[in-house]
Simulated assay, not measured.
Amino acid sequence: MQVKDKIVIVTGAGSGIGAATAKHFAKHHATVIVSDIKEEKAKTTVEQIKQEGGKAVVITANVAKYEDVEQLISETVSQFGQLDVIVNNAGIGPRNMSKTAEYTLEDWDSVIAVNQTGVFYCMKLALQQMMKQGSGNIVNIASLAGLKASLNNLSYCASKFAVVGMTKSAALEYATKNIRINAVCPGYTESALLSKLLSVRPDMDDMLKSVIPMKRYGQAEEIAEAVVWLASENTKFITGQTITLDGGTSL
């Protein structure tokens, strides 16, 4: 895929889909800014990339803090002179899976702050830089929960529906500016979020797999391949799209 020498930020790249995406970009000869709220996890991803001969650096950031995102973008441009791609992957789930009437204010506020407002901050500031340089590419990590209802998961579902909407709105706004904006919507994928869910409800493992036609969870690497493809020069006529990777679950 044609991403060689591109300068790429991946948020939430200390684990899961983010780490796999950072590694996949590096494999295809991009320079990757590995960003995560947890510095040690980000450093581990960078070390793994460098062991494979790739180029990567760490810039820590909490995407729910505007000043952190400002620093992330400014440091990237200061070090590398440009920002070609940002992958807005950082995300969290609620502490408690509850029906709407019992949903806690803490779970609502924290999930919306990271998954929705954090994506807005990253898009806003990345777009300012991309407009200056006359090109850019944004890939947002949404979810199957951004396309279909998700029981007892209101804040996560709301935030991911918002990411899909923000992707489409911004793509329309910047389509004539040589800036493409797309989203991927993973279904049930092996990740920290899924592990957390199954640790609380082990009985859900068989239930979840029963609704996936392929009868297995997705792999982080499979999502990463789609992200890098959307960010590459191979997809120059694609913008405002949501690519669903769910093993057929949405069928």
Rank of each mutant, 00 (worst) to 15 (best):
G16K: 13
K196I: 07
G165P: 07
F120W: 15
G16L: 05
L245Q: 13
K50W: 00
G247S: 01
V200I: 14
F237A: 12
N115T: 08
M131H: 10
S143F: 11
F237K: 09
G248L: 04
I33R: 01
D205V: 02
R180Y: 04
V10Q: 12
D205C: 04
G247I: 00
K209A: 01
S191Q: 11
V164P: 06
S210L: 03
I73Q: 03
I181L: 12
K99Q: 07
G81L: 09
L208A: 01
V8E: 12
G54M: 00
N234R: 09
N89F: 03
A64I: 00
T117V: 13
N115Q: 08
T76V: 14
F25Y: 12
I59W: 01
E70Q: 15
I179E: 03
A231M: 06
N152A: 09
C185Y: 08
I243D: 06
S191C: 10
Y188D: 12
S191E: 11
T235C: 15
A61C: 09
I59C: 04
G134I: 11
M204E: 06
G218N: 04
S250M: 12
S78P: 08
S98C: 13
I33M: 06
V3Q: 04
G54K: 00
A220S: 13
P186D: 12
A226R: 10
G118S: 07
L245W: 06
V34R: 03
F25A: 06
I223M: 15
T45R: 00
I212R: 00
N88E: 03
G136R: 10
M204V: 00
I37V: 15
M166G: 10
A175N: 13
R201K: 14
T31E: 04
Q219Y: 15
S159R: 01
G91D: 08
K168G: 05
V57P: 05
N140D: 09
N89W: 01
I49A: 02
K6L: 15
L127R: 06
D5C: 02
D109S: 14
V69W: 00
S98D: 14
T176D: 14
Q79A: 12
D84E: 09
V163G: 10
K236L: 13
L151I: 12
A149L: 09
G12L: 02
V57W: 11
S199F: 06
N88H: 07
T249F: 14
A171R: 05
P213V: 08
V77W: 04
M1W: 01
A30K: 01
L72R: 02
S232T: 00
L154D: 14
A171G: 12
T242P: 02
A162D: 07
R201F: 15
G146P: 02
L197P: 05
L127I: 14
Y66E: 14
V58R: 01
L230Y: 08
L194T: 06
V77P: 00
D109H: 04
I223C: 08
L144F: 09
D107M: 08
E222I: 02
A101S: 09
H24E: 15
T239R: 01
Y121F: 15
M1E: 07
D107K: 13
Q133C: 12
L194Q: 09
L83V: 04
K132E: 15
E225F: 05
R180S: 07
V32F: 06
I138M: 03
S150R: 10
I59P: 03
A30C: 03
G54T: 03
L151D: 13
V111R: 04
H29A: 11
N153Y: 15
L125R: 09
K55S: 15
A101Y: 01
A101L: 11
N182E: 11
V111Q: 05
Q128V: 10
Q133M: 08
